[in-house]
């Protein structure tokens, strides 16, 4: 159930994970670089890291947009540990890899269950045509692209009764995005637009094709003299009606997300990144989506 919510949170965190470096008076590493949590700053050549996530589903948005809290005596928690790596392959181009391991705990009035395994591996690329801060009026402009491979276990492959061993969406997903960033003193402002397209899935004699998912994310970050940064973001994702066996089913989705994030560098090479994200539980903001709160913490080692 949390899978799709996680996708939204993941996209948002990806976008948060790395504003480009500029200065104390120049915003830094805590902002918008969609498609991977490990975004290289302009002086960095490579990084590896571990990312830990904890998410709790506290409700959901109905097809009519009404917010409904989780029923009594039910709960859902998801844990995730990601291996993150990024490599600069061109002066302005970088590749990144995310390998997730996921565990889910689910409890209903009559049953509780815990399961997990490897999730869907994500491979992504970013090319900065211009860097924020390079020009007075031209923003940083970056093209983002990514592919998520169905390496996790989809819900129909799950063996546990409550599906807690499902760790993937069961199909390929391609992302394309455009990120704009502008630096003004210690502030960085970013807007990222993303579109995600999923391949169709066939289970038994039912073929499902999800509609493209469009996400718009706005973020701002403040950078301190020691390269630490604090950021806030808001994103909104929209997904049209899916098709089942070629027939459109009315089931549009709307996913709002708020978040705050930060980065604290211990040295020039080691930094800690974290964030708290949630789907605001207000009716009509969301539709056909779970409401989550998620905490993310990453430890990253970079090379320049």
């Amino acid at each position: 159930m949390l899978r799709y919510g996680f996708c939204a949170a993941l996209l948002a965190f990806m976008a948060m994970a790395a504003f480009p470096e500029r200065a104390w008076a120049q915003a830094c590493c805590a902002g918008a670089g969609a498609v991977t949590p490990g975004r290289l700053a302009i002086h960095e050549d490579a990084l590896v890291g571990l990312q830990f996530k904890v998410a709790h589903g506290f409700g959901s948005f109905s097809p009519t947009g009404a917010y409904v809290p989780s029923p009594p005596r039910t709960t859902e928690w998801e844990l995730e540990q990601d291996l993150v790596a990024a490599l600069r392959v061109l002066p302005r181009g970088q590749l990144a890899l995310l390998v997730p391991v996921i565990q889910t705990y689910r409890r209903t009035p009559n049953q509780s269950e815990f399961g997990g395994g490897f999730g869907d591996v994500n491979f992504s690329a970013r090319y900065d045509f211009t860097w924020a801060g390079e020009a007075r009026y031209i923003p940083g402009i970056a093209l983002l692209a990514g592919v998520t491979f169905p390496t996790g276990e989809s819900i129909e492959q799950a063996e546990n009764t409550l599906g807690t061993d499902a760790t993937g969406v069961g199909t390929y997903q391609a992302n394309l995005g455009l990120a704009l960033e502008h630096i003004e003193g210690p502030w960085l402002f970013g807007v990222t637009g993303l579109v995600a397209r999923r391949a169709s899935r066939t289970v038994g004699n039912v073929t499902t094709l999800l509609a493209p998912q469009w996400t718009l994310l706005a973020a701002t970050a403040y950078t301190f003299p020691n390269d630490a940064a604090l950021a806030a973001l808001v994103s909104y994702a929209v997904e049209g009606d899916p098709e089942v066996n070629g027939q459109k089913i009315e089931s549009t989705r709307r996913m709002p997300l708020f978040g705050v994030a930060g980065v604290y560098p211990f040295t020039d090479q080691w930094r800690l990144q974290g964030g708290l994200y949630f789907n605001p539980p207000f009716s009509q903001l969301g539709r056909n989506t779970p409401a989550l709160v998620e905490f993310v913490l990453s430890v990253l080692r970079s090379w320049s």
Binding site: P20, E21, R22, A23, Q26, I42, H43, W131, A132, G133, E134, A135, R136, I138, D268, S304
Partner: peptide, 11 residues
Amino acid sequence: SKALGCALRLR
């Protein structure tokens, strides 16, 4: 060597 500073705003 590599300068690890901030991008210069040249435009």
